[in-house]
């Protein structure tokens, strides 16, 4: 479904090109959960942002291809990418407090991807609210009605991240990208979020690209793993292969 080929991202700092990501290749099949693991600065977030079409800064050059069911996400126009963002690709960020707008209620933020396409989807206000509440409940927000009318600072970190997952899922995307979604949360909440993602994957068949520096989380969740270091893919394979028989020294270091 998603194929990343020869992805290379460079940014220009004081006229000198600096490579952030190079020679990255991987595929995600329908219903698969792929984990990207690596330390900070390894280019894993950069890769995720490139897939989500969020790298349109002028100081960056990108080459290679990112193919999502026939659409090249790297070389399409902004307009084409906008139609995919939030619609076919959902994105969950690391810090749920900062990634929510502090002055808007949670409900409208969960609905937003729908609201942007309100006209073409023919959705009424009630439809959107019903859909948002349904999803918020499905990701484990018991009192969805209260949270719908709360502001982000009035709910807990775990609730915020669940709401953000619901927000990323409102339009039933094919691919959900989670960029370290559990890093800012404490361990018990982490486990619950992982469970939510697992169940979501099992029930709806949504593919997930999960980025983390925490191998135990990757092990608990993913089918396949890509290990990145300094912008390069050092090893990739199924969770079983990587954890039982790591070939690369760096991977071994990470595991033990």
């Amino acid at each position: 479904m998603l194929t990343v080929k020869d992805l290379k991202i460079e940014f220009f700092d004081h006229e000198l090109p600096e490579v952030a990501v190079k020679d990255v290749d991987f595929t995600i099949n329908d219903g698969e959960i792929l984990g990207i693991v690596g330390e900070s600065g390894s280019g894993k977030s950069m890769t995720a942002m490139a897939i989500a079409g969020l790298l349109n800064r002028k100081d960056l050059t990108k080459s290679g291809s990112i193919d999502l069911d026939g659409v090249d996400l790297l070389n399409s126009s902004r307009k084409e990418i906008r139609a995919i963002q939030g619609n076919e690709i959902g994105f969950v960020f690391q810090d749920p407090l900062n990634s929510m707008n502090p002055v808007l209620k949670v409900g409208p933020q969960v609905e937003e991807a729908m609201r942007i396409r309100k006209k073409s989807l023919g959705l009424s206000k009630e439809d959107m609210k019903a859909r948002a509440l349904e999803l918020m409940k499905s990701v484990g927000l018991e009192d969805a009605e209260r949270i719908y009318d709360s502001y982000p600072h009035q709910i807990s970190g775990g609730q915020r991240q669940r709401a953000m997952i619901a927000a990323a899922l409102v339009l039933k995307p094919k691919l959900l990208i989670c960029d370290e979604p559990t890093t800012a949360l404490d361990v018990t909440v982490q486990k619950k979020i992982i469970d939510v993602l697992k169940e979501l994957n099992r029930e709806t068949g949504t593919s997930i690209l999960f980025i983390s520096h925490d191998l135990s989380v990757i092990k608990a969740l993913c089918d396949k793993v890509v290990v990145m270091k300094d912008g390069l893919v050092v090893e990739e394979g199924s969770v079983k292969e990587i954890f039982e028989n790591p070939k690369n020294d760096y991977t071994r270091q990470l595991i033990f």
């Binding site: 963002q85 939030g86 959902g90 994105f91 960020f93 990634s99 942007i116 396409r117």
Partner: peptide, 11 residues
């Protein structure tokens, strides 16, 4: 960050 989130939703 929230602006990036908003972009990721197709704004």
């Amino acid at each position: 960050d929230y602006s990036l989130t908003a972009y990721a939703r197709g704004n």
